[in-house]
């Protein structure tokens, strides 16, 4: 089996670009974990909702997908705030099982309604930005834009967390909720906002993925699992770690198939995941706590 160097490079770059989007999805998961210690099991379906929202806005109103993405983000934020107050707030201090199951029930509700409404047949957003050729490497325009947007979103999130008052509140609550409350931070609102930001990132990731892959309501599940892996890789609760983790995973996905069948990729991913949980639960880049 002779694999050409060019092919490896092409596949590596492909994976890397995808990794940016994985990173955004994982950032949503890890942000929620970092602020409130909740593993959001509705993460996958929310990613899928991001895909569908983009699809419908694009299809029904003919809006440019990247303008639509802005709407998707807002919807994602609102949905997250709603989910927080309906499902999470009441059990935020209960044992882990409660929040796991509460968010999982949201997962079931979204998948249940989504399957009934959208059926199980795959959709795709009929949109293309052409492609860019650099020597042997051909890059899809949509993926390139997605990667750029992912970086922009990360930058935006950092500006928000470090330069704005709500952002500082979020960090305060993440650090020590009781102390933050004593200092007058409205913790319920801040937790809801954080949850909303987490789902917003998930929805954005979904929207971006929809511009280059077909999808169903179940399509988010894969990215939810990838987000777990990435979140742990980068350190749960560490947004920049999530982006880096996304890149690592993307590159692995690009490069592993050069050496063994693609089907081995998930085996290695999940083994890596468990291994890191065991030997470096704070993630490769060290968490803040």
């Amino acid at each position: 089996m002779q694999i050409s160097f060019d092919l490896i490079i092409a596949s590596l770059i492909d994976g890397l670009l995808l990794g940016f989007v994985y990173g955004i999805a994982a950032m949503g998961l890890t942000l929620i974990w970092g602020v409130m210690n909740v593993i959001n099991l509705a993460h996958g379906p929310i990613i899928a909702l991001g895909m569908f929202s983009l699809y419908f806005i694009f299809d029904l109103f003919g809006l440019n997908p990247y303008v639509a993405l802005l709407l998707v983000a807002i919807l994602g934020l609102l949905l997250g705030v709603l989910i927080y107050f309906v499902a999470v707030h009441r059990v935020i201090d209960a044992p882990h099982l409660s929040t796991l199951l509460a968010t999982f029930s949201i997962n079931m509700i979204i998948i249940g309604l989504g399957t009934a409404a959208f059926s199980a047949s795959p959709r795709n957003v009929d949109f293309s930005l052409g492609s860019l050729s650099l020597g042997p490497v051909t890059l899809l325009g949509t993926r390139l834009v997605a990667a750029v947007l992912a970086v922009a979103v990360t930058g935006g999130l950092y500006l928000f967390l470090y330069r704005t008052r709500p952002g500082r509140y979020i960090r305060a609550v993440a650090n020590n909720r009781d102390a933050a409350e004593l200092m007058g931070v409205p913790s319920a609102q801040i937790l809801a906002l954080s949850f909303g930001l987490g789902t917003m990132l998930a929805a954005i990731a979904g929207g971006l993925i929809a511009t280059f892959f077909p999808f169903t309501i179940l399509a988010g599940g894969v990215y939810e699992l990838k987000s777990f892996v990435i979140g742990v890789l980068g350190g749960l609760g560490n947004p920049v770690g999530a982006l880096l983790g996304g890149l690592i995973l993307g590159m692995l996905e690009g490069i592993i198939p050069a050496f063994m069948p693609t089907t081995w990729v998930p085996v290695l991913e999940f083994l890596l995941f468990v291994l890191i949980l065991l030997v470096r639960p704070q993630g490769l880049f060290g968490a803040r706590k």
């Binding site: 210690n37 796991l100 069948p261 089907t263 998930p266 085996v267 468990v274």
Partner: peptide
Amino acid sequence: RLRGGYFALATIGINEAMRAFINN
């Protein structure tokens, strides 16, 4: 050794790894 959410995550990882492995 892992507690709370970390244990839950690890069990998910194990199951997925096993499924992917058996697949191959």
